[in-house]
Amino acid sequence: MIYKFRSKAAADVIMMGPTGDQVLRLMGREPSAQGLVDVESLNAAISALERGVAEDEAAFARLQLEAEERGEVLPVRQGISLRQRAWPLLELMRHSLAARQDMVWGV
């Protein structure tokens, strides 16, 4: 599935299925073909997604620290990080919140 997140406040954000599923779960939503994050819920959704990104970054930092302590080669990120994937959606949600507009997908 491809997710297309929309708001009247900013440009659309498109995500492939697995990433879209992941960010929706981090926001406390079940992945679905259609959905809505209303203005009143945007702050909580932004905070939840930012926490998820921070946890992902912390987990990777722990991996690097553990490898360094063992004298191993430090792991490097493979592909695009969650922080990079979530940034456009976070920006869309921030603009939506500022403009008092809901965010939808699949509609």
Rank of each mutant, 00 (worst) to 15 (best):
L92G: 06
Q22R: 10
L26F: 08
E66V: 07
A98Y: 14
E66M: 14
L24N: 11
E40A: 12
V13L: 13
P75R: 00
M93S: 04
P31I: 00
V104Y: 14
L65C: 12
S96T: 08
P88G: 01
A9K: 00
L63H: 08
S41T: 09
L65N: 10
L49H: 07
F60C: 08
I80Q: 09
S96R: 01
A10F: 00
G52R: 10
V13A: 01
Y3G: 06
S47V: 04
A98T: 06
F60H: 13
R94E: 06
S81W: 07
Q101D: 01
L63V: 05
G71K: 07
V73H: 04
E50L: 15
V37D: 03
R25S: 10
I2Y: 05
L36C: 10
L49K: 04
Q64M: 08
R29M: 04
A61Q: 10
L90S: 02
A54V: 02
V37Y: 11
R70Y: 14
K4I: 05
Q22K: 10
M27Q: 15
V73G: 09
M1D: 08
G71V: 14
S41V: 13
P18I: 08
M27S: 13
L97C: 13
G52L: 09
L89C: 02
M15H: 12
E55T: 06
E40Y: 06
E30S: 03
M16N: 10
K4T: 05
R100Q: 12
A48M: 09
Q84E: 09
V104F: 15
S41L: 14
L49W: 15
D21V: 01
G106W: 06
A67K: 05
L97H: 07
A45D: 12
Q101S: 12
Q84M: 14
R70P: 09
D21K: 06
M93V: 03
P75Q: 15
I46T: 15
R83F: 04
E66N: 04
L97D: 12
P75T: 06
V107G: 10
L63G: 09
R100E: 14
E57F: 05
A54S: 05
R94K: 01
E40K: 07
Q101N: 14
T19Y: 12
R51G: 02
